[in-house]
Amino acid sequence: MIWNDAIQCSHYLSQLAVAALIEEAELTPKPGLVDQQNSGAHTDLTLEMMIRSAQALQTTFANIAYIAFQREPSQQLREEIAKIGRCGEKVMFETTGGINTHKGAIWALGLLVASAAMHKPGTPSKEIASTAGRIASYPDRYAPQQMSNGLKVQQRYGVPGARGEAQHGFPHVIHIALPTLHKARQNNIPETLARIDALISLIAYLDDTCILHRGGMEALITAKKLAKAIISVGGVSTSEGWNGLLQLDQELLTRNASPGGSADLLAAALFLDRLYQETANQSNKCVTMTM
């Protein structure tokens, strides 16, 4: 895929972002999260609602890619992206009847879509994430002066949260989720299990503000401990790891906690993974054809 203009680029990247959100939602089973089996700790959500919400955001991601196409990080661009993102949140709430399905994902994927539109196809994921971090580091002077649940948790527990993750170039995506996904594939682990392993790795190391908001520090510590135990026995493709996954799910449900932040970062990882695979392969084909 070599995009020739902003329209082509925005169409492609928005489709990829929506696909990543749907693939994350449909991944089953996921501990404490909405999937094809149940709604996890989210009694107000369904898989069908998650999919409708993701599809409704395609225009949002397309508009972000369009205005970011071949630009450089700047204060103005940061605020233009934020304005589009807030419009996207309104669309989301209208689609879901006021339920928050993808607010965190709009932030994370919006920044990555913008960054991808600024770079040439085939740019490594780490560079795209780094540029997204540069965009996120500019303040949004027009942001509503209200305290979100995520910001309350950040202040209470002193964790980086979604904002810190983005500003640092999505380290949990680049250094944890993607390497876990790639290693599992190299070991011939089925794709579904490889993606669950990537999610488990995020739960193990991320200070997930969604878990903190719903279950407090004790829930976060417990979730991390159980996730690391799954990793230590070789992941969910092993019988011990699978049993550990079921235990983690039950523990989260008991505490009414959900690793929503980890789910958002898994979607980000799936987006970057597919983007690099498709654009790098296409670029290589184009080089071969011209030699």
Rank of each mutant, 00 (worst) to 15 (best):
residue 165 E to N: 03
residue 164 G to D: 08
residue 243 N to A: 10
residue 215 G to R: 10
residue 138 Y to A: 05
residue 136 A to I: 09
residue 86 R to Q: 04
residue 26 E to P: 01
residue 237 S to K: 03
residue 137 S to L: 10
residue 5 D to N: 15
residue 124 P to T: 03
residue 30 K to E: 00
residue 99 I to R: 15
residue 106 I to N: 04
residue 48 E to M: 12
residue 160 P to A: 06
residue 136 A to W: 11
residue 193 L to A: 04
residue 255 R to Y: 06
residue 117 A to I: 08
residue 128 I to T: 01
residue 86 R to I: 06
residue 46 T to W: 06
residue 58 Q to M: 06
residue 184 A to L: 07
residue 113 V to N: 01
residue 254 T to A: 05
residue 255 R to G: 03
residue 124 P to H: 05
residue 22 I to D: 10
residue 97 G to L: 11
residue 230 I to T: 04
residue 112 L to A: 06
residue 46 T to Y: 14
residue 83 K to G: 04
residue 283 S to P: 01
residue 167 Q to F: 01
residue 39 S to I: 05
residue 97 G to S: 04
residue 72 E to G: 03
residue 259 P to K: 14
residue 257 A to Y: 14
residue 150 G to T: 04
residue 121 P to E: 03
residue 28 T to Y: 07
residue 185 R to Q: 14
residue 60 T to M: 09
residue 161 G to A: 13
residue 145 Q to T: 13
residue 167 Q to G: 10
residue 194 A to D: 04
residue 62 A to H: 06
residue 95 T to A: 04
residue 147 M to W: 11
residue 236 V to F: 06
residue 43 T to E: 11
residue 134 R to K: 15
residue 44 D to G: 03
residue 289 M to S: 14
residue 263 A to P: 00
residue 145 Q to L: 12
residue 205 Y to S: 14
residue 159 V to H: 07
residue 152 K to P: 02
residue 94 E to N: 15
residue 84 I to D: 01
residue 60 T to Q: 11
residue 13 L to K: 09
residue 13 L to N: 02
residue 25 A to N: 11
residue 113 V to C: 07
residue 290 T to N: 05
residue 150 G to C: 03
residue 128 I to R: 00
residue 48 E to K: 13
residue 182 H to P: 02
residue 168 H to N: 07
residue 49 M to W: 07
residue 97 G to A: 05
residue 77 L to N: 07
residue 63 N to C: 08
residue 289 M to I: 13
residue 151 L to F: 08
residue 111 L to S: 05
residue 203 I to D: 00
residue 156 R to M: 07
